[in-house]
Amino acid sequence: MRALVVEDNVQAAEQISEALTEHGFAVDQCHDGQEAWFVGDTEEYDIAILDIGLPGRDGLSVLTDWRRNGNKMPVIILTARDTWRERVTGLRAGADDYLIKPFEMEELLARVEALVRRSNGHATSVLAAGSLELDTATQRATLQGKHLDLSALEYRLLAYLMNRQGQVVSKAVLTEHLYQMDFEHNSNVIEVLVNRVRKKLGTEHIQTRRGQGYQLNADR
């Protein structure tokens, strides 16, 4: 899962990024509206946390332009603007949720998670593929009831694939969603990562489609 944090207060941005990273997200930060608009439209994110009062460009106009371009990425507005008129305006501009500062980090994480789940069409925090289960709320994966010990990156890969069960996911897409922007794209880290996860799950769960990508299926 990859998240975009748009926040002009650098310390606030750091805090949010840290919490999201701990929660299994690859996080990019933007401190400027113009940059946020460009990055949000060119990179693939599973969620964006957007402040409204931004230098360079207002957060609302960034959001409006994303939506006008057909960008459907889930967006949570996180702002100090707390009047109902401002909330309505933000949600009408295309935000999926609106959280007011000062906020509790747990609240933000819960909302991020609920939104990601909803955007992937899941009703609960527990994703299951046969005997393989993954709880996005607690970030724990179990296989036949037994706890799997996964690194942050391994968890991210598994969560992403389980959110898209049965779909073929290309290496490029995985790279986009698992790593931050500054990652070197042309290495074979994805293959190495997939192999490491396969060792823990058993080979039958993740299949390789030659030239297309990877596919996660429920065990038969």
Binding site: N9, Q11, Q15, A19, G53, T79, I100, K101, P102
Partner: peptide
């Protein structure tokens, strides 16, 4: 609105 923004951001950072 600006004052809200100016005050609440630091409070938010402090709390977290």
């Amino acid at each position: 609105s600006n004052l809200a923004h100016a005050l609440k951001n630091p409070i938010s950072v402090l709390k977290n």
